[in-house]
């Protein structure tokens, strides 16, 4: 069953077409990656799917709910971890999680249970009393993902979650993302090819707002006639692949 069905989605900013007639679908529980060079339209696509930006034309349905007509219903089933680390710097890790529980209207009991579950799942116990603004980039990203997960979303958008992290912090986050596979439908955007290849069930490659290919990493490599995924990406984006 499809968690996301995108139909002819287009976003124009004056003369610039950021996303051009995009159509694709993502299955429930799938980890789906959006790849592309800067300006390919990945972030705009995520912004439209998460109801942050209205499409110029077309529509998308998240678990059957339209992003144009049912924004409140869509917002109740999604969560976003934006590209920049979106945490409240003056609050502790626990207070950040409490903030998200509060804005989702959780009861005190549910709040305590969710915070306990997520701090354990994401290994945040040791820093739960520390101010978020004083944490390293890696810890802030973990917190950012925990804040996104706290509302028990059916669909999770991770916009470049490992950008700027060191190898170890990135590996830790990969483990966390892998642990979510199958439970939550995840849309991931990334610049790291090995990340997309290792984590994703399927990958879509975009360029200039257009969808170039959408398939598994192996099939994309086969299409580009190479064993190296990064090379496959370059060939497809440059239009060299058949």
């Amino acid at each position: 069953m499809d968690a996301i069905r995108i139909e002819n989605l287009t976003k124009k900013y004056k003369d610039v077409v950021a996303v051009d007639n995009l159509s694709l679908s993502v299955r429930k529980g799938e980890l789906f990656s959006l790849l592309g060079v800067n300006g390919a339209g990945k972030t705009t696509t995520i912004k439209m799917l998460s109801c942050l930006t209205q499409p110029t034309s077309g529509d998308a349905f998240l678990n059957g709910k339209s992003i144009c007509k049912e924004t409140t219903a869509v917002k109740s089933i999604i969560a976003v971890s934006p590209q920049e680390t979106a945490v409240a710097p003056g609050l502790s890790v626990r207070e950040n999680l409490e903030l998200m529980c509060g804005v989702h209207g959780f009861s005190k009991d549910k709040q305590n249970a969710k915070i306990a579950e997520l701090t354990e799942r994401l290994g945040l116990e040791s820093v739960s009393k520390k101010k978020a603004g004083n944490l390293s980039g890696g810890w802030q990203r973990r917190l950012s993902i925990a804040m996104a997960l706290i509302s028990e979303p059916e669909i999770l958008f991770l916009d470049e979650p490992t950008l700027g992290l060191d190898v170890l912090a990135r590996s830790d986050l990969w483990d966390i993302i892998c642990s979510l596979k199958g439970k939550v439908t995840i849309i991931l955007t990334t610049h790291y090819m090995e990340e997309a290849e290792a984590l994703s069930d399927r990958i879509a490659i975009m360029k200039d707002g257009k969808l170039l290919i959408c398939d598994t990493a192996d099939k994309i490599k086969a299409t580009a006639e190479t064993d190296n995924f990064e090379q496959a990406f370059v060939r497809i984006v440059k239009g060299v692949a058949k």
Partner: peptide
């Protein structure tokens, strides 16, 4: 201004607030 710059507002815009 800081909330806008850090994307915290963007995150909160996707909540029921």
């Amino acid at each position: 201004a800081k909330d806008r710059g850090s994307s915290l507002l963007q995150r909160l815009y996707t909540t029921p607030l």
